[in-house]
Every structure is written in C-alpha cells, then in structure tokens.
Computed example of a mutant assay.
Amino acid sequence: MNFATLDLNLLRVLDALFSEGSTVKAARRLAMSQSAVSGALSRLRHALDDPLFVRQGNRLVATDYASGIESGLREEFERLEALLAPPATFDPRTAEGTFRIAASDFFAELLMPPLGDRLQKSAPKLRAQLVDLVPNDYVASLERRNADIALIPDLKLPDWVNREPLFHSPFHVIARKGHPKLGGLQEGMQMHMDTFCALHHVLFSPEGNLAAMGDAALRRVGRQRQVAMTVPVFSGVCRAVSESDLIALVPAQLAKKVAKTFGLRVFEPPMSIEPALIIGIWHKRSDSAPMPTWMRRQVFELMKGLDLDS
C-alpha cells in the first residue's frame, strides 16, 4: 500500500463498517448512498490487499487482518478528534506553560516584579521568562518561536506581526549623588546645555553604537555630547553612573525606579527629546491561543500603567 496516495476519507468508511457491520447502516451513519459505501469498500480492499469483510448472513464480519487494525484505527480517530477539538476554557488558576518575553533589562526592573506577583496570585503554574532582546532581530525571534512577545520601540513591522501601543518613555539625565560638577543643581531641574555637553556620558547600546536618540536631538540644536563608554544593559549604565562622574540619559520610568537603589540624582535634559513609544508585538498565529492571549493581557495591562500621563 502506498500511504501517500491513500484517500484518507476511505478510513472513515472503514471505521463505520466496523461499527455497523452493514453497508446500509454505514451509509446511513455517514450520510452517503449504499453504492458509495460499497465503492469505497472496494477501493479499500484493493489498497490494503485484503477482503476486509466477509458476509455472514445479513452481517459483514471482519477478516483477521481487519480485526487487527480495528482498535488502532479507532484510537487514531479519537486522537484526531481531540487534536482538532476547540480549546477548553482557559483557567489561569490551573493552567500550565511557559511564556517568553523578549525585552531589554529595563523590563527586569519595571515588568517582572509586578508580573511575578500577579502570576503567583492568579496563575501559579504559569512560568514567565524574560529573554534577551537580540538587536535588529526582534521579528525573527517571534517567527522562530524564541519569544511569544517582544517589547520594543515602535517601528515598521511585517503584516504577520500584531502590535499594541503600551507607553511613552521620555528621557531623564542621571548622575551620582555628590557629583562635583552638579552640586548647585537641584534635583528635577533642567541641566544646563553646556554642563550636559561637557560631562562624559555612558550610553545604553546593545549594538555598541556611539549615538542614540539623545544625540539626534542635540544635532538639531547644533550641539554634541561626549560618549565615554557604551553598555549593553540598563543596569550596567546605572551602575557605571553610580560609581563614577559619568552621566547618562535613561528612560524616565527607569530613572524614577532605580534612583534610590543606585544613589542617583535625576534631572531634566537640556534639549527636547521626543518620548519613545514602546509597543508589544506578537505573531498573528497566536492571536486566539488561550494562554498567550491571557499572558499578553497581563503584561500589557502592567506596561500601560507605566505611561507617565496615565
């Protein structure tokens, strides 16, 4: 038998014949004519090289070969029925699974603690993983199933990716407490442009770039800053600033969150910087999947609370 050319609809007929023992009853069960069932049985006999049934009075009796495959065929149909059945109602209290979030370590500070608390209370068997956000590879991580969602700055996306706006992230300047050049500047005030450009900066850049949004804003007013180092994680930026006379531009929400922990002072930048829009993206194939849908909702609710205008 060449399985590749076998009409699998014939197996439905075979299953009905096993159950009914009659071409008439099988036809009624399948909403087919008796002649169509008889024709299907003939093709099955040819394909499987076995009579499959012999007539005994008014009933068809399975051959030894057919009897040997009857239970296995029924099990396969049951497995297919379960596979194709609509998903059961999702209950986060009992659901199990892993949800991967591709994002920078900004979200280790601002998302994962409240998400962990929420999951412990409402979905204790679900696991959340924050995985590295690979530069210039956001979409590919979704396509390869390395992540269920990615949290990124707004950008152009292919048609098969869905997006949801989450929050706007303005920028603040951070410096260590006791910085010798900033003693006369009160926290929350705008740093003077000359001071900002004279001091050395540490720049967040996973790619190792020496310029970012702040540099573009400076160029618009004919100024530039001095980038002394780049660091691929925000925690490293904050640590470098806390233990040196370097300063940095970081998202305002992060500055507010970690200032006390790292012993930092926070100031307004001297130039206008358009706040970055942070979005959540995911593959459309998981639009209706119960667990990813529920997890996206939890993540997005927490992230929308970060909008400083909310």
Rank of each mutant, 00 (worst) to 15 (best):
A259Y: 13
A259T: 14
R59H: 14
Y138Q: 04
M213N: 15
G188W: 09
S71Y: 13
P275M: 12
G305N: 07
R55L: 09
L166D: 01
R45G: 01
G21P: 01
E81Q: 10
A212S: 14
G57I: 03
D194T: 15
Q34A: 14
L218N: 00
A40K: 15
A62T: 02
T23F: 08
L10R: 02
G188I: 15
D105N: 11
R220W: 08
R219P: 07
R285D: 06
R28C: 05
P114F: 11
F204G: 09
V233L: 13
M271R: 14
T98L: 06
K125P: 00
V266Q: 00
P269L: 03
K177N: 12
E109A: 12
Q186E: 15
G68I: 11
N136E: 10
R220D: 03
R239K: 12
M291Y: 02
S286K: 12
F262S: 08
E243T: 10
A95H: 06
V237F: 05
F90Y: 15
N58D: 14
F77W: 04
T195S: 12
V13T: 11
M213S: 14
R296T: 01
Q34K: 13
M191C: 10
P86L: 06
P124F: 02
L308K: 00
P232V: 13
S272W: 10
H168L: 10
E75G: 02
T230S: 15
T5D: 09
L126P: 08
E207R: 13
M32I: 00
D159Q: 14
L110V: 03
T94A: 02
A26K: 01
L44H: 07
P290D: 01
L60W: 13
A240D: 09
R239T: 06
R74G: 02
K121T: 11
D132S: 14
T89S: 10
R55F: 10
C197N: 12
G184C: 07
D148P: 03
F77D: 07
F107Y: 07
V61N: 09
L119S: 02
L151S: 04
V231W: 02
R219A: 15
V237E: 06
I281R: 07
G214I: 01
L44W: 11
D91F: 12
F300C: 07
P232Q: 07
A66G: 08
R45F: 08
A140L: 07
R127E: 13
E274K: 14
L48D: 04
R265A: 11
Y138D: 06
A102Y: 01
